[in-house]
Design a protein around this nucleic acid. Structure first.
Length: 370
RNA sequence: GGACGGUUACCCAAGUGGCCAACGGGGUCUGACUGUAAAUCAGAUAGCAGAAGCUUUCGGAGGUUCGAAUCCUUCACCGUCCA
């Protein structure tokens, strides 16, 4: 179980497969986010149609509502949400960061205020693991502290605490049918990142994640960190870049040896009216599309593009109809799945570097042209 | 025919002598969104000007005043009531 097979490499880029209790996932892979045990606006059937093979769900949210015990009583997250393919749960660590207005961190864990009813709760590494064991995802994440990249003096202590918490997570873990991934922190400081990567890699884990990126730093800073961290991670284990998912970031990540991505971007942008493509972002609410009878992307094979015009989807957006979010989510996820699929193929064919260069050139030239 | 009430920017709607190019909604336009407190948020919305600023607005016309969307006269239209 949880065996990672490296099937091909091209430069630093890798193609592999990872065995989980709910099936084998082929990497590079993109996982859409289903925070509340649902990928917003999409049914599991639609996700399967999109060839989605991994979804991320969230410990913090499901603990607060409906409660991890209820999910456990339902037979686990897979049964509860009727998603029979692999699931990854985030540990709640990111919420410590993103809900920082209402938190208090100490060595033991973090006290936070529920965004739902204001009640106080406490997460510790042990608690996070226990909740994730109740939820029952295939891959569970260590409870980490994701620090603001701009608070440099704080990053080192947050990183060290994340390391101590990782050891506690490993100790607390009981279930054998879940893979616990450790998380590398260290902000945008290359030295701290190296320290963190070496430490996390020193522990024998089924996979390794890079956290604390795409949280406000520049693309250049993110790429600089991605240039060094994978070098310190074992080759024969999957590497997961947390929270990253714009088309260009996927390419840049794969180029640097990342295997797994997750992101809310395709579904959030969809609900807000923006479509992804190989040549940049398209804001479908723009007036120029009012009478545009073309699909979102010419030649795209997704359900939305095969069946509907930009004009129709814009109308749905203007009328605030739910179907708009569904159709654009389908398109956006299709686009990202297509990027990782084509990347994987290019890696096997040893032409990924050129694929990446072409992709990025096309992507950026189209953006600046518009 | 008479008596009141009303007419404000794309729509609704505040404002009753200077702080009004005019509160607030809606609509529209543009932008943002990366381990989802996000079907959310931000800005713009008379015209011209990147800004300072200038020009034209509050049903029409005329008047009072240093100064009017706000006061007066009159006309038009809408509403309610009376004959």
């Amino acid at each position: 179980m949880f065996h990672f097979t490296l099937e091909a490499t091209d430069g630093k880029a890798r193609a592999g497969s990872f065995r989980t209790p709910h099936g084998v996932i082929q990497t590079p892979i993109f996982a859409p986010v289903g925070t509340q045990a649902t990928v917003k606006s999409l049914t599991p059937a639609q996700l399967k149609e999109l060839s989605v093979n991994l979804v991320l769900s969230n410990t913090y949210h499901l603990y607060l509502r409906p409660g991890d015990q209820l999910v456990s009583d339902a037979g686990g997250l897979h049964t509860f949400m009727n998603w029979r393919r692999p699931i990854l749960t985030d540990s709640g660590g990111f919420q410590v960061f993103s809900l920082n207005e209402i938190r208090k961190v100490d060595e033991d864990g973090v006290i936070f205020k529920s965004h739902i009813d204001g009640s106080m709760h406490r997460f510790t590494p042990e608690k996070s693991v226990a909740i994730q064991e109740n939820l029952g995802a295939d891959i569970i994440m260590a409870f980490d502290e994701c620090a603001d990249p701009n608070k440099r003096e704080y990053i080192a202590s947050a990183m060290e605490r994340t390391h101590r918490w990782l050891e506690r997570c490993i100790k607390a873990k009981k279930r054998e049918d879940q893979a616990l991934f450790g998380i590398v922190q260290g902000g945008v400081d290359p030295h701290l990142r190296e320290v963190s990567a070496k430490f996390v890699a020193s522990l024998d884990l089924p996979g390794y994640a890079i956290g604390g990126l795409s949280v406000g730093e520049t693309k250049a800073e993110m790429n600089e960190i991605l240039d060094i961290v994978p070098d310190f991670l074992p080759e024969n284990k999957p590497r997961y870049l947390m929270g990253v998912g714009s088309p260009e970031d996927l390419i840049n990540g794969i180029l640097r040896g990342i295997d797994i991505f997750d992101c809310v971007l395709p579904t959030r942008l969809a609900r807000h009216g923006a479509a992804m493509s190989f040549s940049g972002r398209i804001n479908l609410t723009n007036a120029v599309h009012a009478r545009d009878w073309n699909p979102i992307v010419d030649g795209c094979t997704c359900y939305a593009c095969r069946n509907f015009s930009r004009a129709y989807i814009r109308h749905l957006l203007m009328a605030k109809e739910m179907l708009a979010g569904t159709l654009i989510s389908i398109h956006n996820i299709h686009t990202l799945e297509e990027i990782v699929r084509q990347s994987r193929q290019a890696i096997f064919e040893k032409r990924f570097s050129q694929f990446a260069i072409d992709f990025l050139q096309n992507y950026h030239s189209r953006i600046t042209a518009e």
